[in-house]
Amino acid sequence: MTTAVRSCAATSCSFNNNADCNALAITIAGAESQASCGTFVQLDARRPVTSDAGRVGACHRLECSYNSDLMCTAEGIEVTDTATCATYTVA
C-alpha cells in the first residue's frame, strides 16, 4: 500500500504545482516535533519504500500510529505550508 499526498501547501517547494506534489516520492523527516517533508532540500540517496509520483516514499516518524517500518499506512496525507504532515498522530 502506498499513501497519496492529497495536498501540499508548501508552494515555495520546487516540486509543488498548484498545491499538488510533483516529487517522485516524498520523504517525511522529523524535527522539533513536526513531521516535516525532507524532500525540500538536498540530494538524498535513500530509496523510498515506493517510488510512485506524489506518494509518501518513506516516513521517519516511527511513533506515528500510521507508521509501519518507515512506511505510511494512512489512506492519504496532507502536507502543510511549512512542509509538515498534518495527518501525524501518536497513540
Binding site: 525532507g38 532540500v41 538536498q42 540530494l43 538524498d44 540517496a45 535513500r46 521517519h60 516511527l62 518507515l70
Partner: peptide, 8 residues
C-alpha cells in the same frame, strides 16, 4: 550535499 543513510 547528499544524505547517504539514516537509522531510526
Amino acid at each position: 550535499a547528499l544524505r547517504l543513510a539514516s537509522l531510526h
